[in-house]
Amino acid sequence: MSTPIIEIRDVSKRYDEGPPALADLSLTVEPGEALAVLGPSGSGKSTLLNMIAGLDRPTEGGVTVAGVRVDELSEAASARFRRERVGMVFQFFNLLDDLTVLDNVLLPAQLLGAGRAAARARAAELLDYLGIDRHSGAYPGRLSGGERQRVAVARALMNRPALLLADEPTGALDTASGAEVRELLTELHADGQTILLVTHDLALADSCASRTIELVDGRLARDERAVTR
């Protein structure tokens, strides 16, 4: 039996005296799953994502990602863990506009101290795989939204992460670009990438996810697996 990529055990998170952002949540994600996290605003989706990324810590409970208790890491160790094991894709791309596409994609490998030749070969492989190799010397501001999100995905995959986290990856895109990103994430999942995505895009969840959960008031309200097509 495979070791889960994500294990969340009895996690609660409180920020003040009000209702908890997460309440006694337990969740396991297996390698190769594509999990969509749905729920209304304030349901705890972003808190859950931040816990898994090691950007926030639970008030109670434990969070294990790729065999590491991320809630017990120091800030420096948490940052290194993200660079090594977790890729992150954001709604607004978070690309550096003064770097070329290639240099944006190379950045995570440079931060880990990877060899230049191996990093450039990996970046070229990703740009080709994602269909944006012709833009390697361009700056992000000259690309469409869909193309910029593909660059962001390439950057997130640069260090071969065990887990890809996507936070509203189609939220800032037009209809056509959103459809491109849905297709891309579906392809990545089919190729074996473990993905957790937070989204309001039901079309994305339906097309990409092998499993969907819904959070309501910080609690797990629904957990469904997709019907095998």
Rank of each mutant, 00 (worst) to 15 (best):
G44H: 12
V37S: 01
R116S: 09
P31S: 07
G192F: 03
T100S: 06
L143G: 08
L22N: 09
A162E: 06
D174R: 05
A114Q: 14
A34P: 07
G146Q: 11
D56V: 12
I5H: 10
L130P: 12
R150W: 04
G171L: 00
D174P: 08
H200P: 14
L184V: 10
Q149P: 13
P20C: 07
G113P: 08
A162M: 05
L35W: 00
D16L: 00
L185V: 07
M1D: 15
G39P: 12
L96Y: 02
L22A: 01
G137M: 10
Y129E: 15
T228A: 12
V151F: 03
I132F: 09
V86D: 04
A119K: 11
E147F: 11
I132K: 08
V101E: 07
A176N: 10
G218H: 07
E183H: 15
H135K: 15
L126H: 11
E183Q: 13
T64C: 14
P161S: 00
A123E: 06
F81V: 05
L22R: 05
V227E: 14
S46V: 07
V181R: 09
A205I: 07
F90I: 04
Q110T: 03
L127K: 09
H200D: 06
E168Y: 06
D56K: 11
L55P: 02
S144V: 00
G54T: 00
L96I: 10
G115H: 02
T194P: 02
L220W: 11
L143W: 03
A114W: 15
N50G: 05
A203F: 09
L55R: 01
V198T: 08
R122E: 12
Y15H: 11
L130A: 03
R83D: 06
A179Y: 09
L49D: 05
N50W: 04
F81C: 04
T64N: 13
G113N: 04
V153I: 15
S2P: 14
G61T: 06
G18N: 07
G145R: 00
L185T: 03
D128R: 15
R155C: 04
E180I: 04
M51F: 15
A162R: 00
L197E: 04
D167K: 04
I213A: 14
D56Y: 06
S136V: 15
E72V: 10
G146Y: 00
L111S: 05
S78R: 06
R134T: 15
V216N: 11
G62P: 12
R14Q: 14
R116K: 14
I213L: 13
D10N: 14
E125G: 13
